[in-house]
């Protein structure tokens, strides 16, 4: 479903991603781990075209999104992304935050959008906040609204960029539960996370990234319990100690 072929990304001379080859099947859940600054966020931004790649090709459903003249707005509308800092629009209510893209980008009828928004908010458990503004929400609520906002575009794939790093443990659980529900429904997902237990539980595959390179990838049990490389082991130990 998503295929990255020899993807490299440079900012001027700084290499952020180097020769990345990844194949993600429909319904797969990939967990991306690695130290900060290793290129995880850039990896996600490349997949939905928020960042252009320097070399290599990315395919979504056999459509090369790195080709010239591709309608990136359409691709972005089909690939949902959820950020560490939620990035809700502070001048809009929860309802308006979620309605915006389906109405403006997908041109869906207003009534359908309203129904869908209510349904999604119910699903992530914050329907009672529908007419609140983002600064009236807790972090966990805000992140769940952000997830609903992405889901409103009915994406084929969801990308999560450290969705719980800015949250306290209680709120982290709320958000992880929401993501788990999505996993059960068969959503294809790429999740950047430091929640090792969570990654172990839901991921089909774990990719360990360091300095822009894929160091190791495989099933969670293999990566977490029997990593082949020393650097992977060191990283996992350092995270688990916290």
């Amino acid at each position: 479903m998503i295929r990255l072929e020899n993807v490299s990304k440079y900012y001027k001379n700084l290499c952020v991603l180097k020769d990345i080859n990844v194949n993600i099947e429909k319904g797969n859940i990939i967990s991306l781990i690695g130290p900060s600054g290793c290129g995880k966020s850039t990896f996600l931004k490349c997949i939905n075209g928020l960042t252009s790649v320097t070399e290599g090709k990315i395919y979504i459903d056999d459509l090369e999104i790195t080709a010239k003249g591709v309608d990136l707005n359409k691709i972005r509308s089909e690939v949902g992304i959820v950020f560490q800092q939620f990035n809700l629009f502070p001048h809009l209510t929860v309802r308006e935050n979620i309605n915006l893209a389906p109405v403006k980008v997908k041109k869906m009828p207003k009534n359908d959008v309203e129904m869908q928004t209510m349904y999604l908010l119910e699903k992530v458990g914050v329907l009672d906040k529908i007419d609140k503004y983002p600064d009236q929400l807790s972090g966990g609520q805000a992140q769940r609204v952000a997830i609903a906002r992405s889901l409103a575009m009915q994406p084929k794939i969801m990308l999560f960029d450290e969705p719980t790093s800015a949250l306290d443990p209680q709120m982290t659980l709320e958000v992880l539960d929401t993501i788990k529900d999505l996993a059960k429904e068969g959503m294809t997902m790429v999740v950047v996370t430091h929640e090792m237990g969570f990654a172990k539980e839901i991921a089909d595959k774990v990719i360990f990234l360091s300095r822009g390179k894929i160091i190791e990838e495989g099933e969670p049990s293999k990566i977490f319990d029997n990593p082949e490389k020393k650097i992977t082991e060191d990283f996992i130990n350092s995270v688990l100690k916290h």
Binding site: K45, N48, L50, N73, K74, R76, S77, E78, G80, I81, F83, N87, L88, F89, L100, A101, K104, V105, K106, R149, S150, M153
Partner: peptide, 10 residues
């Protein structure tokens, strides 16, 4: 904010 908006396809 810009990324969130573009990420939604605007």
């Amino acid at each position: 904010q810009y990324e969130a908006a573009r990420g939604l396809g605007l």
